[in-house]
Design a protein around this nucleic acid. Structure first.
Lengths: 117, 117
DNA sequence: ATAGATACCTCAAGGTTCGAGGTATGTCAA
DNA sequence: TTGACATACCTCGAACCTTGAGGTATCTAT
């Protein structure tokens, strides 16, 4: 049951976009699907989230794009800029910092574990 | 540099509140400080975030509260209800699911690691 | 009475993702 | 040629969350 502004997902699309595009340039539609595949179908972000983010990241100089023709289809392919690489480093570090801190706080609070999902 | 709606923190205050209160009942002010301590000063949420959340969780039946007098001071002490325990299980599971999925997507995308912070 | 510490409260602002609704461009079948 | 379908892209209002600012209340000590 999803809701707007879901738990724990803030900033995740941006991190994943930067990470996956650092691996290889892709167009928007492919990116949506790659995120799903890369997370074993656990994470799925709609186009309504991904495209505005791609535009935003391009406007801020973290991504660059070019319309390319591949297999008879026209696509807008995005690549990470040097600035985007720096942003990836920051974001990835922040992710790890938060995860570590939360797990520390949860684990450090005692020994009880919730039942597995 | 903090900003409203910061990265990766959505839902974290609620998870930590439930977890720490499940460990022992506390008043709001103590909770703010306990979260900071439990995370080795890595996470800090202002009262402006914690109190409205405590009120919201109490309104929804996840927490109960009682004004108590301790050491000459009056405090509102919160406890987790059975309903709140269930919510903790859900939230904790969701946290673990998201962390696992993101790490899978990030790690699975290739072998490059960002420089350590 | 005032200062300081402890304890609690409220709210506007800014930003994010969801989901809905749409457009555009190719291929293929009828 | 037209329509269906798949691929590809776009926009926007709604809902929601945390930040940070500004405040109130209650205690002790001077």
């Amino acid at each position: 049951m999803k809701r707007s502004n879901p738990e724990f997902l803030n900033g995740v699309p941006e991190l994943l976009i930067l990470r996956l595009l650092a691996e290889r340039p892709m167009h928007g539609y492919d990116l949506v699907q790659s995120i799903r595949r890369a997370s074993n179908e656990e994470l799925a972000f709609g186009e309504g989230c991904i495209y505005p983010l791609l535009h935003k990241l391009e406007a801020s100089g973290h991504l660059s794009s070019r319309r390319e023709k591949l297999d008879g289809r026209s696509r807008v392919v995005y690549r990470v800029t040097a600035r985007g690489q720096s942003r990836l480093v920051e974001t990835w570090s922040e992710w790890r910092r938060v995860v570590q801190a939360v797990n520390q706080a949860i684990g450090g609070a005692g020994h009880a574990c919730p039942a597995s999902a």
